[in-house]
Simulated scan of single mutants.
Amino acid sequence: MPDSRQVLRTPAMAALLAAAALALTAGCESGGPTGAGPAASKKPSPTPSPAWNRSPRSIAAVGDSITRGFDACTVLADCPEVSWATGSDTQVDSLATRLLGPSAPTHSWNYAKTGARMADLPGQMTRAAAEHPGLVTVMTGANDACRDDVTAMTPVAAFRTDFVKALGELRAVSPQSQVYVASVPDLKRLWSTGRGSPLGKQIWKLGICQSMLADADDLGAGAVARREAVYDRVVAYNQVLKDVCLRDRACRYDGGAVFSYSFSGAQLSPWDWFHPSKDGQARLAELAYARVTA
């Protein structure tokens, strides 16, 4: 048999192949004689999601008092050095420290604010976007449920609108930034754990999360219903975080890891028995690192 490589090089065969190629090209461009061939009817392929970078070069944190390390070092004060997201404390071993190593102090920013609610997130995200960070961490929502009364809790629809707006602020300036979204903690579990401290209950009376923590030892029908309303609202907030994050090509929700985590007494602030202690901040850092690097 003749060598096929030699046959393909003959002038006659080359001419036939050229003609066939020309006809095939014309058919693909026109969709065949009628213009409605199989190629024309196919839907365009969806844009592939970008590969998740498990080693971002910079981190910006947005959120509330938890990310500011409130009440983790001293009473009624922020302590950002122990923040689970960007802190420098070696015992906490923050997400920034784990991911960035020695460059963490110069390549991480904490724009969270104690008392912030979801409505404050767009403004924080605008500041974070200006840094063009490789990763933005989000932890907010507890203050939307922690109000003086359950009737003052942020409506779920408003919570969604503000979260969508916040991500929009980021994407408008820094479209390539990845986002890690932590779930809202289970406030009912924190009440159940913290109420074991007589001191903690006295501090709660000063006004901490009254929708959940008021009358901590009251197990009557009204108090139980109030706490259930807060619990249900937190569950709804977390569903929003999950849904909105899924629609963003570079966003990862924690899968409810923070909500499901059972903080022990040692992992709650010894000053308010509600916010994470330094040990609690370390646990949050572990949960975030596991998700970001998965």
Rank of each mutant, 00 (worst) to 15 (best):
P2M: 08
Q6W: 15
V7F: 04
L8Q: 12
L8A: 11
T10Q: 09
A12M: 08
A12F: 14
A12H: 14
M13Y: 12
A14I: 14
L16P: 12
L17M: 02
A18C: 09
A20T: 12
A20E: 10
L22Y: 04
A23Y: 04
A23H: 03
E29S: 14
E29Y: 10
S30I: 15
S30M: 13
G37L: 13
A40E: 01
S41P: 00
S41N: 13
K42A: 09
P44K: 02
S45D: 13
S49H: 12
P50I: 11
R54P: 07
S55Y: 06
S58Y: 04
A60N: 07
A61T: 11
A61C: 05
V62A: 04
D64W: 00
I66N: 13
G69S: 10
F70C: 05
D71V: 15
V75R: 14
L76K: 15
L76F: 14
D78E: 10
C79R: 11
E81G: 09
S83W: 04
A85Y: 05
G87Y: 06
D89A: 03
D89K: 09
D89T: 05
T97C: 03
L99Y: 02
G101I: 11
G101C: 02
A104L: 09
A112N: 10
A116N: 10
R117L: 02
A119N: 04
L121Q: 08
M125A: 11
T126Y: 09
R127E: 11
A129Q: 01
V136K: 00
M139H: 14
T140W: 06
A142P: 00
A142N: 00
N143L: 11
A145E: 06
A145T: 06
D149T: 12
D149E: 04
V150D: 08
V150G: 06
A152G: 15
A158S: 12
R160D: 05
V164K: 09
L170E: 00
A172C: 00
V173K: 00
Q176G: 10
A182G: 03
D186E: 04
R189E: 03
L190F: 01
T193S: 09
T193E: 05
R195V: 12
G196H: 08
G196V: 06
G196K: 10
S197Y: 05
P198E: 06
P198S: 07
G200V: 10
I203N: 14
W204C: 02
K205N: 13
L206N: 15
D215E: 05
D218C: 12
L219K: 15
A221L: 10
A223T: 07
R226D: 01
R226F: 03
R226Y: 05
R227Q: 04
E228N: 04
E228V: 07
V230F: 04
V230E: 03
V230M: 01
A236Y: 01
A236W: 03
Y237A: 03
D243R: 14
D243S: 11
L246G: 15
R247G: 07
R247M: 08
D248E: 00
C251K: 00
Y253N: 09
Y253D: 08
D254I: 08
S260K: 04
S262M: 15
S264A: 15
G265V: 15
S269Q: 09
P270L: 07
W273Q: 14
H275F: 08
A282D: 03
A288G: 00
A288S: 06
R291M: 07
V292R: 00
